[in-house]
Design a protein around this nucleic acid. Structure first.
Lengths: 210, 210
DNA sequence: TAGATTGTTAATCGATTAACAATC
DNA sequence: TAGATTGTTAATCGATTAACAATC
């Protein structure tokens, strides 16, 4: 990896490029140009080349990028060339839906890297129920579950007022990356990555353009 | 509104500021400084002041921003000072979860502006079922539903391969803003706003930091 | 070889931060 | 009035775009 300090936006576009390449695999084209990759991912050709240059040289002048090779390289850079285990905190509507959604994609999509390793809640009436074969456990069991299976990623789907505590519990358990769906800003230590995925925030943003 | 051409990032932060102000209402503080608003929204004080300056002057020197007033002004700017009707296309796991989620927030949260106006699918076995009182209709009924109720916003929760067609149907029906949850880049005409909310993309992005 | 497209450098553009006069 | 904080301008920083030599 040439540069570990690639900007946030570059990493985000890398994920986008990978999605395009995954959708291209079945095609009969072996090579793709920065031009076409950019078009299909919503970026300029120059941007594609500059983004990739943060991590190495993956193309051939006059030809383009070998689809399978570039896919493998980007997957490696994003750490999705292996199984990535994650847990969901909060077995409400959204948590259960995301559990089912990721399970289904894992079943149907070759190479889908994300694997649900646990589903946690504090509601006694939910604990013990299963979602697509994964039992809902009490939040107190998180620490052990994370340690046992080496999970480092958590999705937070608890109500707003419980979000910070769920995040704290994740951090204590050794989680390194958190995707927060709760409509609440939460704090994490410097060594933990946090992304926000509050749907309501997107709705507000979009409403501006109405 | 002083400037309709505020950058994307500014509008996004506006939504964040509003979320903080909504959470502040119950407090006994009448005024909030750019410093505190920034801290609680994850922005710098200078950024808060500069962002707000795109739209007008809302503060008092030496004092700060009156919480209720600023909340009202931002709500107005974001067009969420009134009911915003939206539809969901795709009554799968995620679509149904989002339908329930928004319905619940509307019931429990004073001033939550988003109201589900319809839920659409093409699967005959789903059509006619109801989700929290909203009947699942066939996608063919979208056009009429949008025209009748003045809906201008749509959430796309169909499978990737159906995403572009769902978007096209939305555009034909007169939808102006689309939030796309399908793991697929889709195209829209210039006059339609599109945001992407593909969870898998966030997971890929986060995995980079593991 | 000729044509095409990469990787990279320089130029442009835009956003963030710092600083401070205005003023509540 | 004195202290505090806004609104705004100037300085800095970083990302995007344009251009082109290198080379497959």
């Amino acid at each position: 990896m040439r540069d570990a300090n690639a900007p946030e936006v570059v990493v985000r576009r890398l994920a986008l490029y990978l999605r395009v390449l995954n959708a291209t695999s079945a095609d009969d084209k072996n090579y793709i140009s920065s031009q076409e990759l950019g078009e299909r991912a919503g970026a300029s050709a120059a941007q594609v080349r500059k983004d990739l240059a943060f991590f190495g040289e993956f193309g051939k002048q006059g030809v383009g990028y070998e689809v399978g090779f570039l896919r493998g390289e980007i997957a490696r850079i994003l750490n999705v060339d292996r199984v990535v285990r994650f847990v969901i905190l909060g077995a409400g509507e959204l948590g259960v839906a995301l559990a089912r959604y990721t399970q289904r994609r894992r079943e149907t999509e070759h190479g889908y890297p994300f694997l649900l390793a646990g589903l946690f809640d504090v509601d006694p009436s939910k604990i013990g129920q299963t979602v697509d074969g994964t039992a809902i456990e009490h939040l107190d069991a998180l620490q052990d579950a994370v340690k046992e299976s080496g999970v480092r990623m958590a999705l937070i789907t608890v109500p707003a007022q419980a979000a910070q505590e769920a995040v704290n519990a994740s951090v204590r358990a050794g989680i390194r990356a958190i995707l927060n769906f709760a409509p609440k800003s939460v704090s994490v230590p410097e060594n933990v990555r946090l992304h926000n995925a509050d749907v309501t925030l997107d709705l507000h943003h979009l409403a501006y353009f109405l």
